[in-house]
Write a protein that binds this DNA or RNA. Structure first.
Length: 224
DNA sequence: GCTTGATCATAG
DNA sequence: CTATGATCAAGC
């Protein structure tokens, strides 16, 4: 077990050391077997990187590096550095949301500071041969924060009005709401349009690829 | 080709 | 079931 990094700089140094390595090389050094495909282990890359960077493994509802206030996100990209998938942020609260505000929302807290680690994600590259890219530490700009807030407020308004089942992934410029469950039979509590209790699929907030692409692009074109 | 809706593994 | 980690794959 690798111990948690004592500082942001140490975390970045560790992440930088991984840049250029393949997932096969990294997993082998940790004696972890690398799957042929991610179809049955969709979170494998994220777990692998958590292990090498010393994140507190497990399913605790807090940031990966809570003592540093940093969340780790691996992101699959193509050869041009363009994200291939949306990025899951957190589960959306469907009950007990009276009084929830953007400022104290889980979305904003999770995204307050993120260590993005791009990883080659094209499916024609064997998992073991996919290379890890240059990491980048990001916090939302005031513009990005405002955009996310607008999307979040619209989506949460619909939830508050009992319209969660009407929400589509087409809503939200950068932040969308989609199912987040093991399968279609998983149900959670929510409220319908007349305030009546209903059972519906759990939903999660996801960042569109356009948004994460901007983050990666901004960093490489306009480093701080 | 890209997005939306559906789904997979694991821990507690 | 809910939390963590996400990608799959049908359909537009």
């Amino acid at each position: 077990m690798i111990h948690p990094p004592e500082s942001e700089q140490i975390l970045m140094d560790r992440a930088l050391e991984l840049a250029g390595l393949t997932l096969g090389e990294v997993s082998q050094s940790l004696a972890i077997s690398c799957p042929e495909t991610l179809s049955r282990e969709k979170g494998w890359i994220g777990m692998l990187l958590e292990t090498c960077l010393g994140a507190n493994a497990g399913s605790k509802p807090e940031q990966d590096f809570a003592h540093l206030g940093i969340e780790l996100k691996t992101i699959p990209v193509n050869q041009n550095g363009k994200p291939l998938e949306t990025t899951f942020v957190c589960v959306a609260p469907l009950t007990g949301i009276a009084g929830v505000r953007w400022e104290t929302s889980h979305v904003r807290q999770k995204l307050s500071r993120v260590l993005w680690v791009p990883v080659e994600g094209e499916r024609d590259i064997p998992v073991a041969k996919r290379r890890i890219g240059t990491p980048l530490l990001w916090s939302p700009s005031s513009e990005e924060d405002a955009c996310l807030r607008a999307d979040w407020e619209e989506l949460m308004d619909w939830v508050a009005l009992g319209r969660v089942t009407e929400i589509t992934a087409r809503q939200g410029q950068y932040l969308q709401l989609r199912p987040k469950a093991a399968n279609g039979s998983v149900l959670t509590d929510a409220f319908g349009p007349h305030g009546e209790p209903i059972r519906t699929l759990p939903r999660g907030f996801y960042l569109r690829t356009q948004f994460t692409h901007q983050i990666l692009t901004r960093y490489f074109l306009d480093p701080q």
